[in-house]
């Protein structure tokens, strides 16, 4: 066995080690697999009110009074003990320039979609979105959202002072170009709480994440 041969073997060993490390690191950084997608689909199709068979009912008649705003209970606080989140919830809408969800600028706060259902709505998806992080403020309230597992508990406080418990049933990741936002911003279907943040690969040029991470919870 020559010195040359030993050197070559060492190089091979180093090469194999480098490949292994790279492969392991790649696997570790891959998005965690979706869980509970079927449950979310089922919830979207649920009709909570008893529609029943439609026999020829008498035509409903009402006074044509001017509409007044419906009673809505906005969420004001969110606690997720499993990932150490205690955040203020702000009522937010749409960014008029982009047509996108107006996530609160402060990354330690999260935003509730005020056009969608509130906490007492009999149906539909209560949506709360928060930053995963920010280039200027660091980690956001939802930095660890992807660590949530089925069965984890959340607590949402409403403007009525009442705290409501939820249980995680699903965690899904979608490319932003493919996410079925209709389903997550639905005002019908089963009662649910939808938490959304960013995830997946980060494009340093556009400073945008490729994916959205979505966690769905139901009243516990």
């Amino acid at each position: 066995m020559t010195v040359r041969k030993r050197g070559a073997l060492a190089a091979m060993a180093a090469g194999a080690a480098a490949l292994t490390v790279a492969a392991l690191a790649t696997v570790a950084s891959r998005p965690t697999a979706d869980v509970g997608a079927d449950e979310v689909t089922a919830l979207a199709g649920t009709t909570p009110s008893a529609a029943g068979s439609r026999s020829p009912a008498p035509m409903p008649v009402r006074k044509g009074e001017l509409p007044t705003g419906a009673e809505v209970v906005p969420p004001v606080g969110l606690r997720i003990p499993a990932i150490g989140v205690t955040a203020t919830v702000n009522a937010v809408g749409i960014n008029p320039q982009t047509g996108e969800f107006e996530v609160p600028p402060r990354v330690d706060q999260v935003g509730w979609y005020r056009y969608g259902p509130g906490l007492t709505a009999p149906a539909g998806s209560v949506v709360i979105s928060g930053h995963v992080d920010s280039s200027t403020q660091g980690k956001g309230a939802f930095f660890r959202l992807r660590e949530l597992e089925q069965g984890d508990r959340l607590a949402v406080t409403g403007s009525d002072g009442q705290e409501r418990a939820y249980r995680v049933i699903a965690r899904e990741e979608y490319q932003k170009t493919r996410i079925p936002l209709d389903r997550y911003f639905a005002r019908d279907g089963g009662q649910r709480l939808t938490l959304i943040t960013c995830g997946g690969p980060f494009d340093a040029d556009t400073r945008r994440y490729r994916d959205n991470l979505v966690v769905t919870a139901v009243p516990a």
């Binding site: 969800f101 996530v103 995963v132 956001g140």
Partner: peptide, 22 residues
């Protein structure tokens, strides 16, 4: 029932949570 969802949910520009192999 005439509502549309937002155009998107932009919720991060820091890159600390990026999951691509570097």
């Amino acid at each position: 029932g005439l509502h549309s969802p937002p155009a998107g949910v932009p919720s991060g520009d820091g890159g600390q949570a990026g999951t691509t192999a570097n």
